[in-house]
Design a protein around this nucleic acid. Structure first.
Lengths: 93, 93
DNA sequence: AGTAATGTTCGAGCGTCGTCGAACAGAACG
DNA sequence: CGTTCTGTTCGACGACGCTCGAACATTACT
């Protein structure tokens, strides 16, 4: 972890990744598997790639539960590292 | 003006543009012409392109003074539009 | 065991962006 | 007027990232 500002900005520069982050912020931790993001206009493999980017930048934590993979937005950790950045994304329409 | 978060994040995703912003924040307004950024490892035309991007995203204001073009970082305006974002860049080492 | 569901990985296509040099426009100055 | 300085614009090149489908691994279910 300990992602750089460079990596954080690049990760959040993608509109699909910001949508993932926003949708994830509206549900409790560990409540949404990756497969429930079919509303996004990308293929499964692309979605998996976006999750990987968010994971590497320290925005996302994942946990296996059977076949599914549950997600958690690491808001406290990210807020401490980059104050205000995540809130900007979450306040986006 | 009225840049989107998308445009703001893309503009600040480039390390050279962040260096321009940081250096510009350390001098008074209208004190540094574009030509005084030769320490950056890019050609003149590339530098002009980066200035254009920063201008379009509302981070930079330019004014002609003779042959030179003076710059001003629009910190108050940008802070009001994207609170915290510019400070993250300025606190970067 | 066989099938379905969930995610990842791989290779390839493709657009976008940063980069450069050359050419150009305008201002200052001898 | 000619030169120099400053900055922009243009076309071209190269790299990186988003995208997809196909193949694979793992788990759950009948």
């Amino acid at each position: 972890m300990e992602a750089s500002l460079q990596a954080a900005l690049e990760a959040l520069s993608d509109p699909i990744r910001r949508r993932i982050v926003r949708e994830l912020a509206q549900v409790p931790d560990w409540s949404r598997p990756c497969g429930t993001f079919n509303d996004l206009p990308v293929a499964k493999s692309t979605l998996s790639h976006h999750f990987s980017v968010l994971r590497n930048v320290g925005l996302l934590e994942q946990r296996d539960e059977g076949a599914r993979r549950l997600n958690r937005l690491r808001k406290p950790e990210f807020d401490e590292r980059f104050p205000g950045l995540l809130d900007l994304v979450l306040s986006e329409p």
